[in-house]
């Protein structure tokens, strides 16, 4: 149980994030869930790379146990991607709020359906 602690936390965050994305209709809350989901993956990569008592991989006679630096480097890239995704998502939410006047998904769907009914009724347009 205790040696799997980091995995349990990872899976818990993963499921929490994914659940928020699916269950919430508010566009901002969805993005929060997405961020939690993505963050859990950072943990999935970084935690196994750390060895208890391990140091940075700089060869020296007094150390024999080293942590793996590669996952950290990978996750730095993934963090940048996550920030870019979040920024773009928030920017889209702002634009949606300007265009629709709401950031609730069901209200947006309702407004879209009204437009579609209108488009069908107008028929052949001049």
């Amino acid at each position: 149980m205790i040696e799997h602690f980091s995995y349990i936390v990872t899976v818990f965050l993963m499921i929490t994030g994914l659940f928020i994305v699916m269950a919430r209709g508010n566009l901002i809350k969805k993005l929060i869930g997405l961020s939690v989901f993505q963050t859990s993956v950072y943990l999935l990569y970084v935690a196994p790379g750390k060895l208890v008592g391990g140091t940075a991989p700089i060869l020296a006679p007094q150390y024999s146990v080293y942590s793996n630096p590669l996952p950290h480097v990978l996750i730095l890239t993934a963090i940048v991607v996550g920030v870019a995704t979040l920024a773009l998502g928030l920017a889209l939410a702002v634009r949606i709020r300007e265009a629709y006047g709401t950031i609730e998904e069901d209200e947006i769907t309702e407004l879209d359906n009204k437009v579609e009914v209108l488009e069908e009724q107008t028929g052949p347009r001049p």
């Binding site: 994914l18 994305v21 997405l34 995704t85 949606i96």
Partner: peptide, 14 residues
């Protein structure tokens, strides 16, 4: 288009 892009962003990121 905005709503479509947002939805694609969520699903694409997942």
């Amino acid at each position: 288009a905005l709503a479509a892009a947002y939805r694609y962003l969520i699903m694409g990121s997942i």
